[in-house]
């Protein structure tokens, strides 16, 4: 499968000269299978540019939402294929203990927050409460589990029989753990990530920043590295960059993280437009 990063920023779109290289768009990742099946992971503002590249021949699209925080759904109404007749769009995301995905998503995709109602979109998207289990979508096998982040939030493990991608953009597995990590059985997200070829993981904070934001649902870079080591992944992509982290700072954080190596995996910092083949 081919994986393209369309938005690597966390929390808030962060356009400006200081973020132009890593990009200011929020979470969105494209996954293409061998038969050109199209999966979209999260609908942050990065999804708008992805929409422009989806050719009219594509008749079915699956959008997998990890959760409904604004930075993961804000781009949904700006995804051009949703306005095409005859495109079958499936949107998956977690329900809450009291409301289904449609009810939760409609709170944003309706006036006054957004002028167009979900039901008025020409593609009439199908909404699915994502099962907390394994399911098949086109040529992909997807495993979905709840992970540690405020509100119902899932991570995804996607495999096409060949390679495996794990996507955990908002994840705080170190919450309440004095010496992270505990053993694998007691680590949120472990089964989703274990032995993945590519792990896209939350690295919102430096360690001093994390100490000020315990319980906000995100990881320090050191936590993501420890998690990747525990899960024995082949490659870790740093993701969900803090809006306040400039290009220069992200370069420095990657270099500093690398100095603590060598690691048994490749460490990459996610840049908008980056592609991976697994």
């Amino acid at each position: 499968m081919r994986i393209t990063l369309w938005g690597t920023r966390g929390s808030l779109p962060s356009a400006g000269p200081e973020t132009v290289r890593y990009g200011g768009n929020t979470s969105c990742v494209e996954v293409r299978g061998r038969s050109h099946a199209l999966l979209v992971l999260d609908a942050g503002t990065g999804i708008r540019r992805l929409g422009g590249t989806v050719d009219p021949g594509v008749t079915r699209i699956h959008i997998l939402l990890t959760h409904l925080h604004m930075d993961h759904i804000q781009g949904l109404g700006f995804f051009a294929p949703l306005y095409r007749d005859g495109v079958e769009v499936h949107v998956y995301g977690p329900r809450s203990t009291t409301q289904d995905l449609r009810t939760r998503l409609t709170r944003y995709l309706s006036p006054p927050l957004f002028p167009v109602r979900l039901r008025d979109l020409p593609s009439r998207p199908h909404l699915h409460d994502v099962p907390l289990s394994r399911f098949e979508v086109d040529e992909f096998t997807i495993t979905c589990e709840l992970v540690a982040h405020p509100g119902p939030t899932v991570g995804y493990r996607i495999t096409d029989g060949g390679g495996t991608l794990a996507y955990l953009p908002d994840h705080e597995p170190a919450l309440g753990v004095p010496r992270f990590p505990l053993d694998a059985a007691w680590t949120s997200g472990y089964e989703l990530a274990q032995r993945a070829d590519l792990l896209i993981h939350d690295t919102q904070y430096t360690m001093p920043e994390y100490v000020e934001h315990v319980g906000w649902g995100h990881s320090a870079i050191d936590h993501a590295i420890a998690f990747a080591r525990l899960a024995r992944v082949r490659r870790l992509v740093m993701f969900h960059h803090d809006p306040g982290h400039s290009d220069a700072m992200l370069d420095r954080l990657l270099a500093e993280a690398g100095n603590a190596g060598p690691f048994p995996f490749e460490l990459v910092s996610g840049i908008e437009g980056m592609q991976f083949e697994i």
Binding site: E145, L146, V147, A148, L175, G176, V177, A184, A185, W186, T187, S188, Y190, E191
Partner: peptide, 18 residues
Amino acid sequence: MLQKQVEIILMRQLASYL
């Protein structure tokens, strides 16, 4: 080895502070 569900993991974390 089966990983615990996140609710169980968070319950342990909380209990460890009580």
